[in-house]
Design a protein around this nucleic acid. Structure first.
Length: 688
DNA sequence: GTACGTTCTTGCTAAGTAAA
DNA sequence: TTTACTTAGCAAGAACGTAC
């Protein structure tokens, strides 16, 4: 039964709570002193493989994502709560379980480090690439690292584990109490005696552990963020980022006559703790999604006031989003006022980048904050790193790090986000477990300084670190039964906001949709093309609909290639319509079925455990063979051109065509005429 | 920090084509 | 002949990378 157990215990938590109580006078924090010490048992199902194992088997762990999350696998785990007094009664049994659980976590960390190192160095060392396919060798390497972790790192220290458990328990207690306050009411809770309170607490936490996806995902996220921090420290202490190849081989226990290759250390700025996960968590409330959409759609216009405003209408909420700078005293009543001008400039400069920064702020908050009142930090450079941008290398008299221009851009986005003002006339929030209609007003994120006072973000600011928290509107949706978090692929944030804007927006929209559909396990609900286009803020090109369609289908193909969606296909669409006039207007009414990747389905499974997840019907192949052959010839040309290191410009000149046209052919977007095709084939033959 | 190169997207136009 | 739509191609501009 006990395939692996993770036990998170608590002891001596009172002192810590006392300290926090002084700084913030939250009701739930007062209550937490009354809660008895408890432990969480995570019993892994025996036949369930670890995240890293199953990923490797599926062949998904490819080059880009180096390491894997340590503790995100929640669906295969049964978690229980036990009181510490119960633990004491059977201390011997539980103690051995506790040791076993620590070992399991260490094994998981070792596994991650090995996977990371293999992915990073496989191209440079033949010896390393062989163990990727040899499970036995891989296990040996994991064991070597495991032994090293147990012997040479801070994990030897019992205090480290003690702190981890305390930290974890404090989070959990507060969340649960917060939810209890929301659903039962604070007066009711106060009237309970200690025993009743503890019983209620037990009920709530058990309910959450047994199947509340949002609870479980946050549970996983905070443990993961803690252990990722460990991995970072371990990697520093073992100097994994800068050692030479043969040292890596030695570490992985492979250095037996392996061939060496001269090696220069890879960029130390490529910090794998930031790209450790394929997915991050973001809020999934309707206001959150509305703000995100307004940012990239740039649909701010003049409304009742002088400020740029975008109307919000999504599901049960209605209202508007304004760009209204933070200001003391009354707002100006003149159109010419400088801050009004500034707001309009910001509305004009909106881009997908702002939505990215917005998401990153959110995911950082969800990972670090245990309470919506908490203030969290983020480094400016981390914001850039999460977007997948590379910083410059230092050395040889040159300065390393990110450019001033890039930092300014981030500050510009932050300044905009600071200025956002949400004004909802109608919103549904959950109070005491029941939906209540209300009005909501407030900012999105509040940026603060050391003293928790408002801090104005400007482009010229020199701060490297930004502190912020959420304002009332989002806070309402973060706790209690209305809470919802969604998985957002990190790749979404990496897409070029200019060139890959369609992909970025689609990925965002799908992340939101899937989380909503997860309640019904209905991932295969068709999406109308017009709705999808509307969601990504694109209008059909009336004159040349094929442009819109081609770009749209290309975006879906790229998402599929990058693993953000599993498959996609038209549900109601007859290809012969495309030959008729006015097909574009029919096309936007067609429907598309988009199948989420297994990982997403797996993570959302606990939301609706009982119902099996539907499988996708066979994909209909549309008979556009000519398009396939186009792509063939295009990819051949690209392959040869890149092999010869020729620029598009140069090759296009040789082929007597424009570079953009050649690019379109290479990407299979445009169909060359017979004449052009003949020319291309002739050119290809020169190099065969 | 700046200048420049590369790659790609988008807007636009001329020319071609098929149906009304 | 007119209309609706597509194709080929140019020019401008955005975003990123790199060299100095």
């Amino acid at each position: 039964m006990l395939g692996g157990i993770m036990m998170l215990d608590s002891s001596n938590i009172v002192g810590q709570n006392q300290k926090e109580l002084n700084s913030k006078n939250s009701f739930s924090k007062q209550l937490s002193g009354k809660i008895e010490n408890f432990l969480i048992l995570c019993i892994e199902e025996q036949d369930h493989k670890s995240a890293a194992e199953s990923k490797l088997e599926a062949g998904q762990a490819k080059s880009s994502m180096s390491a894997l999350p340590i503790f995100t696998e929640i669906s295969g785990t049964n978690s229980f709560i036990i009181w510490e007094r119960v633990y004491q009664q059977s201390a011997q049994v539980f103690n051995s379980l506790r040791v076993a659980s620590r070992n399991r976590l260490i094994r998981q960390i070792a596994d991650n480090i090995v996977t990371y190192l293999l992915m990073k160095y496989k191209k440079l060392s033949p010896a390393l690439s062989t163990i990727l396919n040899d499970e036995r060798k891989r296990m040996l390497a994991v064991q070597t690292i495991e032994a090293m972790l147990k012997k040479d790192t801070f994990l030897v220290n019992a205090d480290v584990w003690e702190n981890f458990c305390n930290w974890f328990r404090a989070h959990l207690t507060e969340w649960v109490l917060e939810e209890m306050t929301q659903s039962v009411g604070s007066e009711q809770l106060e009237s309970l005696n200690k025993k009743e309170l503890n019983e209620l607490f037990y009920q709530y936490i058990s309910k959450n552990l047994s199947g509340d996806i949002d609870f479980l995902t946050r549970f996983a996220a905070i443990v993961n963020s803690y252990t990722v921090d460990w991995v970072k420290r371990i990697s520093q202490s073992l100097n994994l980022e800068n050692c030479a190849l043969h040292e890596i081989e030695t570490i992985l226990n492979l250095n037996k006559g392996a061939s060496f290759q001269e090696f220069t250390p890879l960029s130390p700025t490529n910090d794998f703790t930031l790209t450790v996960q394929d997915y991050v968590f973001v809020m999934n409330s309707a206001p959150y999604q509305s703000v995100r959409e307004s940012l990239y759609k740039k649909n701010f216009a003049a409304a009742h006031s002088f400020w740029p405003a975008a109307s919000i209408s999504k599901g049960s909420i209605e209202g508007m989003l304004q760009i209204k700078p933070l200001q003391k005293g009354s707002y100006p009543l003149a159109k010419e006022n400088a801050s009004v001008q500034e707001a309009w400039e910001q509305a004009e400069a909106l881009s997908d980048l702002d939505a990215d920064i917005f998401d990153i702020l959110c995911t950082n908050f969800l990972t670090k904050a245990k309470h919506f009142e908490d203030v969290v930090d983020i480094q400016l450079d981390d914001l850039l790193a999460i977007r997948g941008l590379k910083s410059k290398l230092g050395g040889e008299g040159r300065r390393g790090g990110y450019e001033l221009k890039q930092r300014r851009q981030v500050l510009k986005s932050l300044s905009l986000i600071q200025n956002l003002w949400i004004d909802l006339d109608k919103a549904v929030v959950y109070e005491k477990g029941k939906p209540v209609e209300t009005k909501l007003q407030g900012r999105t994120f509040l940026f603060v300084d050391q003293q928790r006072k408002d801090c104005r973000i400007t482009e010229e600011m020199n701060e490297k670190k930004i502190s912020y928290t959420v304002d009332g509107v989002f806070a309402k949706y973060l706790f209690g039964s209305g809470r919802q978090v969604a998985l957002l692929p990190v790749k979404t944030l990496h897409y070029d906001p200019y060139r890959k804007a369609w992909e970025k927006r689609l990925a965002r929209y799908l992340s939101w949709r899937w989380r909503i559909q997860a309640r019904k396990s209905d991932f295969l609900q068709p999406n109308k093309v017009s709705t999808l286009l509307e969601a990504i803020g694109i209008k059909l090109n009336d004159r040349i609909p094929s442009r819109t369609r081609d770009r749209f289908e290309k975006a879906l193909d790229i998402l599929q290639k990058d693993g953000l969606i599993k498959t996609w296909h038209y549900e109601k669409w007859d290809e012969s319509i495309a030959d008729q006039k006015g097909w574009g207007r029919i096309w936007i009414h067609s429907t598309i079925i988009i199948d989420p990747p297994e990982y997403v389905k797996e993570q959302y499974r606990p939301i609706k455990r009982n119902r099996p997840i539907q499988t996708l019907p066979k994909v209909q192949l549309d008979n556009r063979l000519s398009e396939e052959s186009n792509k063939m010839i295009g990819s051949q040309i690209r392959e040869i051109r890149e092999r010869l290191s020729l620029s598009l410009q140069y090759a296009a000149e040789e082929l007597e065509m424009s570079s953009s046209y050649l690019s379109s052919i290479e990407r299979g977007i445009k169909t060359p005429s017979k004449k052009i095709q003949a020319r291309l084939i002739k050119w290809l033959e020169r190099f065969h």
